[in-house]
Design a binder for these strands. Sequence first.
DNA 1: CTCCGGCGTTGGAGCGCTCTATTGGTTGGA
DNA 2: TCCAACCAATAGAGCGCTCCAACGCCGGAG
Lengths: 334, 334
Amino acid sequence: MARPTMEDVAARAGVSRALVSLVFNNSPKVSEHRRAAVLAAAEELGYQPHVMARALASRTSTVLGVMVSDLRNAFFADVIEGLESAARDAGFELVLNTGSRNPARENAALANLLSFHPAGVVLLSPVLPASAIEAAAATCPVVLVSRGSRLSTVDTVNDDGVAGSTLAVEHLISLGHRRIAHLDGGSATTAAARRKGYRVAMARHGLDPLVVRSEHTDVAGEKAVHHLLATVERREWPTALFAGNDFNAFGAISACEEEGLRVPEDISVVGYDNTSLAALKRVWLTTIDQPRMEMGRLAVQALLERVRDGRTTPARHLLHPSLVVRGTTCPPTA
Amino acid sequence: MARPTMEDVAARAGVSRALVSLVFNNSPKVSEHRRAAVLAAAEELGYQPHVMARALASRTSTVLGVMVSDLRNAFFADVIEGLESAARDAGFELVLNTGSRNPARENAALANLLSFHPAGVVLLSPVLPASAIEAAAATCPVVLVSRGSRLSTVDTVNDDGVAGSTLAVEHLISLGHRRIAHLDGGSATTAAARRKGYRVAMARHGLDPLVVRSEHTDVAGEKAVHHLLATVERREWPTALFAGNDFNAFGAISACEEEGLRVPEDISVVGYDNTSLAALKRVWLTTIDQPRMEMGRLAVQALLERVRDGRTTPARHLLHPSLVVRGTTCPPTA
DNA sequence: CTCCGGCGTTGGAGCGCTCTATTGGTTGGA
DNA sequence: TCCAACCAATAGAGCGCTCCAACGCCGGAG
């Protein structure tokens, strides 16, 4: 278990420890034959530089802390893949932590991350109070994903929920729909922007908005539709539904079918998020896709700009979502 | 950004650096009033011990490396939650990495993890060659999750796929089914055990097995069912399907409905994995649940036993899956 | 033949911490 | 009264590495 150190490599290669260090930081001022000797010795011993020792000595960290509010949410998995690939390219490593959408645990998780003295910290949709985020930002660069902030010390990466909703509504309108209801995401952080985009888009076309209070779950989507159909006169029924997210859409589709409405012939449904669920052949949901990997990459980039280029102005990335047309939308039947 | 060190705290509290160290390792041999003074000073300065420096000095690491072959798979998210909670309880931190189910990238990810000189490494369903795993095990304790191994230097944590299949088959038989087909998982690592359990359980009840080659995806499940129904005489059609996993089951259900078979009235379906998909109200799939969090916890425990208690014999955890009865199974209609 | 500049190389200090050995001060039993 | 025993506290070495200042060496200019 005792792993070889730089000293061991130096001894075996017949050089000084400093030279080994230079080789491993591929300094140009090392003669070719020495470099080869060092590399050979390292190879034979199975030597691998000690990240922590390096961090300590160089006073710079290659660690990027990542706090995920909810690992189970597949959305974050994609963002993390983006983070990971960007981090690897830049020579950084990720240290991951979960907060389970609980402020106290998120705080502990964040403290934990900070104890690594990381180069930067990425918070994925944290439920932390702004004060905690501000405190962290005093320590190292912080970037928020899927959560806004006014703090000038933190960067943010979000999808443009207003634009996403607009895409959904415009798509439905272009198909010929005019009575389009929105199943609202309630208290979810992303819900407000989506609702706003819906309202604005509807207004632009002179259409009356119809917002049904719901949540980002399949059960809520189901309930909302039953409620909607029960309270609205039949001939006033919407011909299209724009759900707050894919799960909600899934529940909404179930409810529609239970009510004897075929999707999409009788009623079109659009989701949001483009989760793996939406791509299942059976569901084949028309939905709004957020560039998740890209969001991860941008988060890392924002961090690096602060670390390497010394940027101090806040970066505000608002990414453009895109429409993924699948099988749950079609023109309304006259 | 310059963070306070132990030296700063010591100076402010009017004690030596060593005393501060003792306080932070809550040694019993520190007088109460000094402890209070140190804690107060640390609080005022916002001091937080530097994990890396500590690791270096103590020659022990509190880092647990985790390599996830595929972060997108929600299965691993649950396992990681288990790892995380167990690690936190034991005072360890997770360093995470992804391999994207690509041997070369997994190798790089593993090397990366090892450069932290972690206390141990958890590999979640790696596709790495055994030799790479063996090499890693020479460096620090290694535990494999959802992947077997003969190496005596590594521990393993798996679910008992044979037992899981048995549960599924016994459930169907107890409902009165006798013609039960299995939609095989093909090359997936877990498929062999599931297939075997199916065969054994069927044989025990004197029933003829019917294995349909498939994959762990919804599209494959759909295809398999269409193929099955096309090649088997109608009166010989199975009354129940045991799918290789939930996705496969989902596709299978779609296909059944397309063929005019109602689920579960005309045909029962059992999945495997109890993914979040299975719990969706619309799907409400009877399936086999793996104790994923528990698997994560056991993985950490296995590591700790090697690190702390010096265990050198391999641990082989085979966890018992359980049956989750939902809405896709019922007695066959005579 | 001496001197200088530059290159490849090295010693050593130090990053923030732990840990062993040791100090100085207090008790309590002989 | 003295010393062993004990306790709280500390000095200092060292973990594996980086980085700066300084070194020896060589070739070419003077």
